[in-house]
Design a protein around this nucleic acid. Sequence first.
DNA 1: GAACCGTGGTG
DNA 2: TCACCAAGGTT
Length: 374
Amino acid sequence: MAELDTLAATDSQIAAFRGPLMEWYDENKREMPWRKTGDPYRIWVSEIMLQQTRVDTVREYYRRFVKAFPTVGDLANAEQDEVLKLWEGLGYYSRARYLHDAAQQVVREHEGTVPRDYDDIRDLKGIGPYTAAAVLSIAYNEPHPVLDGNVMRVVSRVFASDANIKKAKTQRHFRRLAGELLDPERAGDFNQAMMELGATICTPTSPSCGRCPVQDACAAYAEGEPEQYPVTPESKPVPHHDIAVGLVFDDDGRILIQRRPEDGLLGGLWEFPGGKAEEGEEMDKACIRELREEVGIDIEVDAPFYTLSHAYSHFKITLYAFRCRLIDGEPTSEEGQPIRWVKVADLDEYAFPRANRKLIEELERRQEEPSLFD
DNA sequence: GAACCGTGGTG
DNA sequence: TCACCAAGGTT
């Protein structure tokens, strides 16, 4: 096994890689909405949405987003609530907040033009090494190699490197190797070709080496077991929490919602108030306690409403929702966490997390069938 | 360096 | 069913 520091692309390897990859890409590239434009702003939007998110998931979100905000200026002038509503369901909501902030920064500091300089674009919130290289290469054809999960897998196989891809040192060398393979004349196409190869041919399990255009340049293929690359460390156990939330109705049939703090999990989204149950605590008691602590009201639990399981990025929950009535107190808006009474029909105007959306769907279902509302 | 940050598809 | 993981970035 070669050491990372001595690993390098040979001339023959580059020759067997660059040309065949580009030919394959020209013949096989998939159609994507953001490939119909040369607008650096739209390419930027697409790359933010594509972070840790599949192409097929992004397509529709992208279309709606650039229709609502055709230019950097339009996005900069938008309200955060409007941006988050368009991001609802896509996940990693800090991406939307950062993109919104960065658009205002581009208007303020760059006259509304996406920077072409690496350090300048890296200064924008939400743009790291990958996105900077992606936008610069695709929008401006600047020769920066991208290193995403696909490229990491391709590089680890081409060079048969068993280095841990979670380590910064490994990524530094893999980025260098990707740069050695890069076609400097067609940087944007080359980067997209690398990612598309990883997504469609050089897949994590059972790669299609028989259809691979760079088979002859691949050391892992020569070894016979490309699936053993890349090497990743074993994952840790995922924690589980029980969550109690209250569907609190007032006398007019409106329901109480609260916006989450800007930072952290689901930041800036609206939700039904509630929180984590304590060890051994009954869920209805947890609901009463949380509503007292979070919004300063006394409520009575009418009935269990719905229970669901949900997985977040690094923990899992079981969510217990209860139908509640306001007994005493006026809901108080904590700092940065405004509350609002909303008609069920108007809940669609707000951005909610998925788990809450499931509750809303159930609410709407039972409103159409009042008999289901015990 | 490592924890944190969503969601849906996949085998 | 459930662990894995996808065009990563921030703190």
